[in-house]
């Protein structure tokens, strides 16, 4: 029941955004762009998980729910800050499923050049403003969310594996790409 899981996460995030205020089922249905019946099903299930209170057609977060929502909310914001609003929805539920742990455990991203040799991470932010350099970097596979592995660090350049290919980046770019460390057990795959 993939959709139910997705919807439940959406509802938790939405309630968190309302900062403790109660929401009506209609409101949630409009925000999540699904039918009211589906919302009811998801809310019932959340109630069972002890994440929400459901009284008088209104929904609010429990203490457990607040904690759960916090995690989802942070993850969402991180993904959104990287990709923009629309794709964040899709990615956080599907593509980034197995990255959740990594996202949660990453307190803050660090610069590419601060990674150690043989460390694995994934890209979360590119602060490259020159559009030519940016699209070349992305075309080489350094899109946000992509895994990389530092293969070699030299004073003048970094050798990085990305999608099974070796890419050499001038040291100065190491300042402009930020990533978080990934853990192999969380990712299930390496770069």
């Amino acid at each position: 029941m993939e959709w139910l899981k997705v919807l439940k996460e959406d509802i938790l995030r939405f309630l968190k955004e309302k900062e403790g205020n109660k929401s009506s089922l209609e409101e949630i249905a409009i925000e999540s762009k699904v039918a009211k019946e589906d919302v009811i099903e998801a809310v019932r299930s959340l109630e069972k998980d002890n994440f929400v209170n459901f009284e008088k057609q209104e929904v609010s977060l429990t203490e457990d729910g607040k904690k759960e929502a916090e995690g989802i909310y942070e993850k969402h914001n991180l993904v959104e800050s990287v990709y923009g609003h629309q794709i964040a929805h899709a990615l956080e539920h599907y593509a980034m499923k197995d990255m959740k742990k990594a996202f949660e455990s990453a307190s803050s991203p660090k610069k590419l050049k601060d990674f150690k040799e043989q460390q694995i991470g994934f890209v979360v932010r590119l602060s490259i403003d020159n559009p030519m350099v940016l699209s070349r970097i992305i075309g080489l596979g350094f899109a946000p969310g992509s895994y990389f592995k530092i293969v070699k660090k030299r004073d003048d350049f970094l050798v990085i594996e990305s999608h099974g290919r070796l890419v050499v980046l001038g040291r100065e770019i190491g300042d402009d790409i930020e990533g978080v460390e990934a853990f192999e057990d969380a990712s299930g795959r390496t770069a």
Partner: peptide, 27 residues
């Protein structure tokens, strides 16, 4: 920048949907 990155996000999203890895590669 946002257009380029969002598009890359979609490419990433699609590839995650259609691709499964079995083997760990030695890098």
């Amino acid at each position: 920048k946002d257009i380029v990155i969002t598009r890359a996000g979609y490419a990433f999203y699609i590839s995650q949907k259609i691709l499964t890895y079995k083997e760990e590669r030695a890098n």
